[in-house]
Simulated assay, not measured.
Amino acid sequence: MSAALARQRQALILEAVRRDGAVRVSDLVEQLGVSDMTIRRDIGELSRRGLVARVHGGAAAPEGRSSEEPGYVAKSALQTEEKRAIGAVAAALVRPGSSVALSAGTTTVEVARALLDVPGLTVVTNSPRVAEVLHEPARHDRTVILTGGIRTPSDALVGPVAVRSLQTLHVDRLFLGVHGLHPDAGLTTPNLVEGETDRALMAAASSVVVVADHTKWGVVGLSTIAALDEVDVLVSDTALPPEAREIARERTGRLLLAGARPGDTGHPGDAPDAGPDTDTHTEDEESLP
Score class of each variant (00 low, 15 high):
124 V>K: 07
124 V>N: 01
124 V>L: 15
127 S>Y: 03
127 S>C: 01
128 P>M: 03
129 R>C: 00
129 R>N: 10
130 V>Q: 08
131 A>V: 10
133 V>L: 06
135 H>N: 13
135 H>R: 15
136 E>A: 14
136 E>S: 15
137 P>N: 10
138 A>Q: 14
139 R>H: 12
140 H>S: 13
145 I>A: 01
147 T>Q: 05
148 G>M: 05
148 G>W: 08
148 G>A: 07
149 G>A: 04
149 G>I: 06
149 G>N: 02
150 I>C: 00
150 I>D: 02
151 R>H: 01
152 T>Y: 00
153 P>R: 07
156 A>R: 04
157 L>Y: 03
159 G>N: 05
159 G>E: 09
160 P>L: 08
161 V>S: 08
161 V>I: 14
164 R>D: 10
164 R>A: 15
164 R>L: 11
165 S>W: 04
166 L>K: 02
166 L>I: 09
168 T>V: 15
168 T>G: 01
169 L>A: 12
170 H>F: 10
170 H>P: 04
170 H>A: 15
170 H>S: 15
173 R>Q: 14
173 R>G: 09
173 R>Y: 11
174 L>N: 00
175 F>R: 08
177 G>M: 00
178 V>T: 14
179 H>T: 05
180 G>K: 10
181 L>K: 07
181 L>T: 08
182 H>I: 11
182 H>M: 11
184 D>F: 13
185 A>I: 11
187 L>G: 08
188 T>Y: 09
190 P>G: 06
191 N>D: 15
191 N>E: 06
191 N>A: 12
192 L>T: 12
195 G>Y: 05
195 G>N: 00
195 G>V: 07
195 G>F: 02
196 E>I: 11
197 T>F: 04
199 R>M: 05
199 R>F: 03
199 R>P: 04
200 A>W: 04
202 M>N: 00
202 M>T: 11
204 A>T: 03
206 S>D: 15
208 V>N: 09
208 V>D: 04
208 V>P: 05
210 V>E: 09
210 V>A: 06
211 V>A: 06
211 V>M: 04
216 K>F: 04
216 K>I: 07
217 W>Y: 14
217 W>L: 07
218 G>F: 11
218 G>Y: 09
221 G>E: 05
223 S>Q: 09
224 T>G: 00
225 I>D: 02
227 A>M: 11
228 L>N: 10
229 D>F: 12
231 V>Q: 10
231 V>K: 03
233 V>P: 05
233 V>N: 07
234 L>E: 07
235 V>P: 01
235 V>D: 02
237 D>E: 03
238 T>D: 08
238 T>G: 02
239 A>M: 04
240 L>E: 03
240 L>Q: 04
240 L>R: 02
242 P>C: 02
244 A>W: 10
244 A>F: 01
248 A>D: 03
249 R>E: 14
249 R>D: 10
250 E>A: 15
251 R>F: 13
253 G>Y: 10
256 L>I: 11
257 L>V: 12
257 L>S: 00
260 A>Y: 10
261 R>P: 07
262 P>K: 06
265 T>K: 01
265 T>L: 15
266 G>F: 05
266 G>Q: 06
266 G>E: 03
266 G>T: 04
267 H>K: 05
268 P>G: 06
